[in-house]
Each structure stands twice: as C-alpha cells, then as structure tokens.
C-alpha cells in the first residue's frame, strides 16, 4: 500500500483533547487522516474504510468511574464486533494515554486470548504526586512481536512526555508473576521507563512517573497490531517540542515520538 493511500481514523468522544496534535503528526507523515466523533461512527459503522485506528488522549466522559471506562463500554456496545473484525484483519490500532486506558477497559489489551470480557490489567492512580506532566526516558524492549513498532531498533532509548493521573500499569496480585511471564513469552512488552542512563527505572520516581509495575509504559496484544502507550508520541514529534531543544546548535527536525508513529505507518505500507 502506498503511503498516501493509507487512511487513519482518529476517534473522539466528549473530553477527548489530544486529537488536534495527533492529526498534525499523522498528516506530517503523508497519510490521510479523519477525526470523527464517536457517535457518528456508531451510526455510520464505517471502520472498514480505514487502515489505522487511533484512540487519542484526553478525559473521555470526564474519566468518571475509571479512566476510559465509559467510552470503552460505549464502543463495545456499539462497534465491538467491528473493532474485533478490524483487529482480526491485522489492521493497526493505537491507544495513547486515555486511548490505552480504553483498550485495557474494553479488554483488547493485553488480550491474552483475544478480547477479554473484563479488564485483565489496570491503569491505576499514580502512586506519586497525582497528575504528572513530565518528560520520561523509555526503552523499546520489544523483540519484534509488536508489528507496529517493528521499525524501531530493539533497545532504542526514547524521550517522550507523559501527562496523566492514572497511568500505573498494574497486574492482578494473585496472577502477577504468571501474567508478566505471559507478556514476556508473547513478546507483548513494548516500552519501559528508564533512568537517563538507559538502565530501568526500577520503580524510582520520577523516572517511573506513576509507580507502574515492572516500569511498564506500553504493551501490545499477542498478535502485535494493537498498541497501548501511556507516553504521548504526538507531543514529541517535532524537534521544537523537546524540553531542551534550545540548547542545540542545530535543533533536531523531529523528536522520538515520530519514530513510533512512522513505524506504524510503515507496518501498514508493508502489510497491505
């Protein structure tokens, strides 16, 4: 598939607020982008027209109950089957921040045996300092199973900001070990928080900004085409978005966030 033929759908619900910068980033990559209100998609049932589906950041429906929970249930009810079909075809689904929370609440992630009826993991309240808006260091730990980040070198170190109050990746205590083993076996771990020197944060604040278990910042489904991230790649897309770009004699044109989004586009180019 040629890049300009690729079509990205960015869904939004009341309270979604990172759609603008996500559109800007994808457009810069040369793909076609639509932003649609989720109600319209519920009515038109037109997911089929798209190759990449993005659930962007924000506070859908005020994040009452649990972050992303209301929007997730609404999507399951109206377009649950369509979403499953979309994913079964190998098309790309990306959830950023609130979008990641939605994918977890809807049971698509980690999705050990396909879509789960109930959430299998949680993105819980940060243990430290409440809402956190800060740049973090991340390591791409995936071994190739995540199709969407397969263009990123293994162990690549990335600098991308987070901004959330509920981002602490958590496994159910009684199956913690088992789930972690499965995440490793299925190669579902994608990004982990590190210190500036690249060693894992080991839960240490602020390098791990929310207290996430095993420093987990992003995971994919076993098939590797559904990706959930707490960090915001669209806020680290251009060089001038970096926190220290004014220190560079020649500021970089792009930031590390672009690597992730471009890798998704490349996957679709290759696959279809």
């Amino acid at each position: 598939m040629r890049r300009r033929e690729i079509r990205v759908l960015i869904l939004r619900a009341p309270g979604t607020n990172c759609d603008g910068e996500t559109v800007r980033a994808f457009r810069d990559l040369g793909v076609g982008v639509d932003v649609l209100h989720t109600q319209r998609v519920f009515k038109e049932r037109n997911l089929e027209e798209y190759d990449i589906l993005v659930f962007p950041g924000g506070f859908s429906y005020g994040d009452y109950v649990r972050s992303g929970a209301i929007w997730a249930k609404e999507c399951e009810y109206h377009i649950g089957r369509d979403l499953e079909h979309f994913i079964d075809q190998g098309k790309a689904v990306l959830g950023i921040c609130n979008g990641f929370q939605l994918l977890v609440e809807a049971g698509f992630l980690p999705g050990f045996e396909g879509k789960a009826r109930y959430p299998q993991v949680a993105l819980a309240n940060n243990t430290t300092g409440g809402y956190q808006c800060r740049w973090v260091h991340l390591r791409h730990v995936n071994r190739g199973g995540c199709l969407l980040t397969s263009s990123l070198p293994r162990d690549a170190l990335l600098r991308i900001p987070v901004a959330h109050g509920e981002g602490r990746f958590l496994l159910p205590r009684e199956v913690e070990r088992e789930y972690l083993r499965r995440l490793y076996e299925n190669d579902q771990l994608v990004l982990r928080y590190t210190k500036p020197d690249g060693s894992y944060a080991e839960g240490e604040y602020p390098h791990n900004p929310n207290g996430a278990y095993h420093d987990i910042a992003g995971i994919c489904n076993p098939e590797g085409n559904v990706l959930g991230l707490m960090p915001h790649p669209e806020r680290a897309y251009f060089g001038w978005q970096l926190p220290d770009w004014t220190r560079c004699e020649e500021p970089p044109r792009y930031g590390d966030g672009r690597l992730i989004l471009e890798s998704i586009v490349k996957y679709v180019e290759r696959r279809f």
Binding site: N17, P161, A163
Partner: peptide
C-alpha cells in the same frame, strides 16, 4: 515544580518554551 507538573502544560503540542525548562 510540584504544582506545575500537575498542570498539563504541553497538551496541544504547541508549547515551545515550557514553564519548566530543560531536564
């Protein structure tokens, strides 16, 4: 910092000079 970090100062991705500068 303890206050500014609880405000999202980068949403919209347009904040070229942020209230807290550099690492």
């Amino acid at each position: 910092e303890e206050v500014i970090r609880t405000y999202d100062h980068e949403v919209k991705g347009c904040t070229v000079v942020k209230p807290l500068h550099g690492w």
